[in-house]
């Protein structure tokens, strides 16, 4: 069993590394997913094996703790899963955003930093002055009630994406649209 686990972990890590090195963000995300699965398998293996491994719930006084599984690795795995889930969701959102920004999900096709850093500096300066004016103007009127309730990061992501004239009409963009999402939006489509 140990040998099998070692093999599975090794294959998962190898496959994850391969995917991470692909020039495609979605594959990178998948690679990270495989990585975290491999790490979790490693944690399971680190708990050791017992021929009879009962789940570690002590429900009565005479529970046989010696044949129970080590509860710590599953514990750690649960935490690690939650964290990798959160980071994965964030990363996927960012992939989508980068795709909307630049119309590509190939990291090698992204523009060089120094090229648009100047633009962004200028834009930031502009935004800052605008914002200062806006603050002055709206300081009295602005209140939380005018705000629609939920406007968190992904919201902003899409809002800003609208500013970009090319990205939304990128040909082939529809292929990237998740199917579930079309279902959600069936009404507006």
């Amino acid at each position: 069993m140990e040998l099998l686990m070692a093999l599975v972990i090794g294959v998962l890590f190898a496959a994850g590394t391969y995917l991470l090195l692909r020039p495609n963000f979605i594959r990178v995300v998948m690679g990270l997913g495989l990585y975290s699965n491999a790490a979790n398998m490693l944690l399971i293996a680190s708990g050791g094996y017992k021929a009879i491994g009962l789940s570690p719930f002590v429900t009565s006084e005479d529970a046989q703790t010696s044949v129970m599984m080590d509860p710590l690795p599953p514990d750690i795995i649960l935490t690690a899963i939650v964290i990798s889930f959160a980071v994965g969701a964030l990363f996927l959102t960012l992939c989508y955003r980068v795709y909307l920004d630049h119309g590509t999900d190939n990291p090698e096709e992204l523009p060089n930093d120094e090229m648009d850093e100047r633009d962004s500096d200028a834009a930031q300066a502009r935004a800052q002055t605008q914002d200062l004016e806006a603050t002055k103007a709206t300081e009295e009127t602005a209140s939380d009630e005018n705000e629609p309730a939920a406007r968190s990061l992904p919201d902003v992501v899409q809002e800003l994406a609208k500013d970009d004239p090319q990205a939304p009409h990128e040909p082939g963009g529809d292929e990237l649209r998740p199917r579930g999402a079309t279902g959600l939006n069936g009404a507006t489509a």
């Binding site: 991470l20 990270l32 990585y35 975290s36 491999a38 790490a39 979790n40 490693l42 944690l43 293996a45 680190s46 690795p73 750690i76 690690a80 964290i83 990798s84 980071v87 994965g88 990363f91």
Partner: peptide, 12 residues
């Protein structure tokens, strides 16, 4: 994220 995965593996 890669670093974190390696961290988990090291912990294991």
């Amino acid at each position: 994220a890669v670093g974190s995965t390696i961290f988990v593996a090291a912990v294991g």
